[in-house]
Amino acid sequence: MTQLFTLFFVFVSHAFAITVDEVLIHVDQNLTYETRESNLTMTVVKAGRTKSYTMHSYGRGQDEMAMEYLSPERDKGTKMLKKKDELWMWMPDIEKTQKISGHMLRQGLMGSDMSYEDLMESSSWRTKYTGVITSEPMLDGHKVWAIELKAKDSTVAYPKRLIWVDQTSFIPVKQELYALSGMLLKTWVMTDIKPIEGKQFPTKMIVEDKVQQGSRTEITFDKVTFKVALPEEVFTTRWLER
């Protein structure tokens, strides 16, 4: 999710060879004052069944995110607030804000292949991984850096990641997340890159579970705006109860 809400894209000239660190800086880098607002649709496919949700969200920096569900009817009005390592959920039908903890964080958001934990990875890849550029292939007609990232310590959830970063937009258009043993666990693909307010933004993301067959989550951004005026107190629990 960091990728989603925290990308800040800088047009960089490629006159000289670039280091992984620099790539990651650009990938990671986030204008701390950057604010954004977006509408998105999430579709979860599991065991042959499909379910779609639409949400509206505000984001600030890498640490703060406030999201509200718009549909389906049943989930409408549900709000989630992420601040650094903490997650709260507001459930309108029971008029309650509840802090989510424990193993629940490792479960998928709304049953998707994206866990709350994936959402909460608020530190950057730079601090968690060391990497090396292995090649510069073409992917879907674009030139990318293929980078192999290895976790710096044993507490990182995904010990190895392979990412393919688009050299033009600095978007990690494809990621493969690996287990400690080297088994492929998930893939994240970002496509439909559109220019928004001068920046390149991937409007579609597909996360796929590679261990359990038939399990997939798709996220489509219907509208993204940057530099928005955020409502008051949006990243507080009070906003949840509004």
Binding site: R106, S154, V156, A157, Y158, P159, A179, L180, S181, M183
Partner: peptide, 16 residues
């Protein structure tokens, strides 16, 4: 089958 588990430190591991 595949067994997927968290290591003691929290990393995800999976083996056949």
């Amino acid at each position: 089958v595949v067994l997927e588990a968290r290591t003691r430190d929290g990393a995800i591991n999976a083996l056949n």
